[in-house]
Amino acid sequence: MTDEPIGAAPVAAQHFSFDGRPVAFTGGQSVGAALWADGVRSWRSTRHAGRPRGIFCGIGVCFDCLVVVDGRADERACVVPARPGLDVRTQEGSGRADLAL
């Protein structure tokens, strides 16, 4: 339990898919943290103004970082653990265009 620098322990990279391209993550990272580390800052457009959103509160409270994971909309990227093979996609609006009337 020391303050060794982050990344001191070599960890084999694993990947999930974000909008069709691979994103690396290390064990224990959330989808949102891995996207952030990859340089992605937003993965949702708002329902009304179409504004970009990503992580805000980082602990599952604000629901700003909603994303589509394996076809399920409205998943909080900051709390969904990254796993190999996940299909993560940008959420447009409510993420439920298929339900539009």
């Binding site: 990344g7 943290a33 952030w36 580390a37 509160c57 602990i59 900051c78």
Partner: peptide, 13 residues
Amino acid sequence: GAAQALLKEHGVV
């Protein structure tokens, strides 16, 4: 808190 959580739990600056 988000900056801290990213750093401490996920190792992301």
